[in-house]
């Protein structure tokens, strides 16, 4: 598979959110606005690319029986790096995402890709897979955030589209997260079903 093919694969065919339904906690918890969703997606993508690359480099040095703990240590390391960098250079983002940054460690997407892709492929391909899956995740989170923001507060990326008082605030709150994602997955199902 070409490098581009790997990236496209992560974007559509194995889209982590709409197809694989992985990493649901940040998908629902951080998408109260498009910007928040995008920040979370990018933070996860950074961790994905780095951990995929490093795990692929180390895969032969790690005995099978301890591969999960080793992967987790590598992932947790990168998560902490991202957390510290955000705290230092983008404190506003760190405050918005809060607990969900350290929780990237237990995001099934990251460990899942390490297991199913990085452990079997070369470092460069693995990094590409990280980019693809990361982009797929980022786009999904941004779309969900955009829908919720637009329906709930009448804004898109913080810019006012229509008066806020017409918005249904529920979409910014907890129930809206579930409902928006439910409908988006249904739409994604419908579209891909037609093609196939």
């Amino acid at each position: 598979m070409s490098k581009l093919g790997i990236i496209i694969n992560g974007l559509i065919k194995e889209n982590p959110t709409f197809v694989l339904l992985l990493g649901m906690c940040p998908t629902l918890g951080t998408t109260s606005s498009a910007i928040n969703g995008m920040s979370m997606g990018l933070a996860t993508m950074a961790v994905l690319i780095c951990s995929n690359f490093v795990i692929s480099c180390l895969k032969n040095l790690i005995p099978d029986k301890v591969h999960i703990p080793c992967y987790i240590v590598v992932i947790a390391g990168f998560v902490t790096v991202v957390q510290l960098l955000l705290k230092a250079y983008a404190p506003a983002v760190d405050e918005k995402l809060g607990l969900f940054i350290p929780l990237i460690v237990v995001n099934c997407i990251v460990l899942g890709r390490a297991e199913s892709f990085a452990a079997k492929n070369g470092p460069i391909d693995s990094a590409c897979d990280g980019i693809g899956i990361g982009l797929g995740f980022t786009i999904a989170l941004t779309v969900i955030g955009l829908c919720r923001e637009l329906l709930g507060a009448g804004t898109a990326f913080g810019f006012s589209v229509y008066p806020e008082s017409f918005g249904a605030l529920t979409f910014v709150l907890a129930p809206g997260a579930f409902i928006t994602l439910g409908f988006l997955v249904a739409i994604f199902n419908k579209l891909t079903a037609k093609k196939g």
Partner: peptide
């Protein structure tokens, strides 16, 4: 059909 499985579960959760 498109609602079966996860989508309807998510809406219920909402």
């Amino acid at each position: 059909k498109a609602m079966e499985g996860t989508p309807i579960a998510l809406i219920t959760a909402g």
